[in-house]
Amino acid sequence: MNGEKRFPEDFGHSVRASSDYIGLGLQVSGGFAFFVFIGYWADSKIGTSPFLLLAGVVVGMVGMALVLMKVVRAANKK
């Protein structure tokens, strides 16, 4: 009974402790892909072939850096 009671608690603790990092990889890669796709789509619409795609890559990389900075800052605060 005791162990059974403890499992949800421990599970909750660990998920809460790691809540900032659960979806981090997906978030970073999804954000990157989002900007790259926006660039690709805009390129195909306007016809400025590789430039907006490259701009999307740059913006996506900046976004990645920002997300990582935010996570690191939050972790440092703790």
Binding site: L26, Q27, F34, F35, V59, G63, L66
Partner: peptide
């Protein structure tokens, strides 16, 4: 840049 990433 941040808002789309945070929404994702």
């Amino acid at each position: 840049i941040m808002v789309p990433i945070e929404i994702i």
